[in-house]
Design a protein around this nucleic acid. Structure first.
Lengths: 318, 318
DNA sequence: CTGAAAGCGCTTACAG
DNA sequence: CTGAAAGCGCTTACAG
């Protein structure tokens, strides 16, 4: 239709709308085509275009839980980076489960330009016929990760300075590898610093409610065990600890110091404000998108490891 | 490849993988095809399939702000309803802006089976070549909406019973129509009940921080104006009011009652627990998805209006 | 019950 | 600089 109206061929229209007309199509014809496109409100068919070209302009981001403010940040970083060149679409897994290989498979069918997978389940081989970049998947070679070491070491040193010698750890139930790494690094750093990690263990789903109820179950045991500080694997979990402490009248940080991971925006406004190992979500999204773009442009992506640092706030007496 | 391995034709394979083989393909051949599909890990190409068929199996949900727990609920409802029949993909607008017609246009290219638009900007004509269902867009005919009346009237009656005669209203800055409706209904109901709505107005983006800082600006004026209760257009906003009241030592509900809209999961656990007009997000998502499915099946969808009700909690002295 | 063939709307060598 | 033609991987009447 457009070709007919512009008095030219379909091939020429294709060149013009794809911006490949430089030096291939004369200016007057290109203008006629653009006018026709405008008047007809023509928009290239995505399916046909993807089919002919072999892949489309979609970038898929698969994440476990979009309602988590952390992922909102990641999404922002990805979007800012892929910009107008690609169309970003999101997919959430069922009930916050970690993305698995089958999720990638399902989106491969869409022939996206690339797939980003945030916090994939451990041990899943995320290979596809399109480029895949993993976010926050320690161990994967195709991944963009945080370097948790500096943040964790700062945290442990800070706790030590504040006089804590026995701490509790509230872990997540998530299958994401990053939680294993957080815990391991933390325990190693504690051992090195002469801080004992209580044998009383607790874990919860990544919600305030779940964390609160897990905390209720172990808080007495922690107290009896001489724990003076609790570190949670995520800020959301730490909020649960804060809530229970508040309800039980346990002074924070006086009787119990609390810290988390993520440094969510709301962590500066909890009561008391939460000390946290900052994992800049937008940076992660940006780095992952850059890596994907590099791959698509045929450039060997450099492996990215994003710095982390400790944000000291009132919950640990800072 | 699959056809070759199964010793049959491409057409037959197509019938089998699309489950259209009943009475058209013999059992042994169908089995051979399925085996071949299994062994080769074959998955139908979405682009080619969409192109040949005219439309695909994608359902697109465009929403302004996925990090809002309310939308997380909506998404859950949609997903539960579209199930395996369609592939749900999400799109977030830039910086939480209300979805506009251009967003719909952009996703039309994907040839989805249908498009769901949550909280679209007011006055946008959301027409497309594929079925579009609007969520929470009062006034639109293709929309699934809440019937806010019962909830708002219960709220006003409740405030009246608690002795409030002068209230403040904290509005959202969102362009979504629903906020206008909330305010209007509330003011009408107040007028009818003999409650004055303070002229001191405040509005904020839908975040706790923004609401808190907006509240800080007007709280004194409200107090001077004799306001004894504040109603916020969303629970997220009400959290900001609660925070400021807490910081200033204003007793809730003793000196100031607070209520919101949405009844987010976290509203039962704020301090104090928040009275709220419940807008069941999952129900909205479910109703919208059902409406889309009905349209796709050629059934005239019945217009849906979802009931709302008041959840009374401690923040208004309940 | 099965398969050859047209066609979905594009893109891209290729020939002119 | 321009256009005719092949082909992307499917689906679906249609003929057998």
């Amino acid at each position: 239709m457009v070709a007919e109206r512009a008095g030219t061929s379909i091939a020429t229209v294709s060149l013009v709308v794809n911006g490949k007309d430089r030096g291939r199509v004369s200016a007057p014809i290109a203008t006629r085509v653009r006018d026709a496109v405008e008047e007809l409100g023509y928009v290239v068919d995505h399916a046909a275009s993807s089919l002919a070209r072999g892949s489309g302009d979609l970038v898929v981001l698969i994440a476990p839980d979009l309602s988590n403010p952390f992922f909102a940040e990641v999404i922002r970083g990805v979007r800012d980076t892929v910009g107008d060149r690609f169309q970003l679409v999101l997919s959430v897994t069922e009930r916050g489960a970690q993305p698995v290989a089958a999720d990638v498979r399902r989106f491969e069918r869409l022939r996206p330009a690339g797939i980003l997978v945030d916090a994939p389940a451990a041990g899943e081989a995320m290979t596809a016929t399109v480029p895949v970049v993993l976010l926050d998947a320690p161990g994967g070679s195709e991944a963009v990760n945080y370097d948790l070491s500096p943040g964790v070491h700062d945290l442990v040193r800070h706790l030590h300075e504040q006089g804590h010698r026995r701490v509790g750890y509230l872990d997540g139930t998530s299958r994401a590898t990053t939680f294993g790494v957080r815990r391991e690094l933390f325990e190693q750093a504690c051992a090195a610093a002469g801080i004992a990690v209580s044998e009383v263990t607790a874990r919860a789903d990544l919600t305030v409610d779940a964390a609160a109820s897990a905390t209720e179950h172990v808080i007495e045991a922690w107290q009896e065990d001489g724990v003076t500080a609790v570190v949670a694997a995520a800020d959301t979990l730490a909020y649960g600890v804060l809530r229970v402490a508040g309800q039980l009248g346990i002074a924070v940080p006086g009787h119990l110091a609390v810290a988390g991971f993520d440094d969510l925006p709301s962590s500066s406004v909890t009561a008391p404000a939460l000390t946290s190992v900052a994992l800049p979500g937008a940076d992660l999204g940006r780095a992952a998108a850059l890596r994907l773009l590099a791959t698509l442009d045929g450039i060997a992506p450099e492996s990215a490891s994003l710095p982390t640092h400790l944000v000291r706030r009132a919950s640990t007496g800072a």
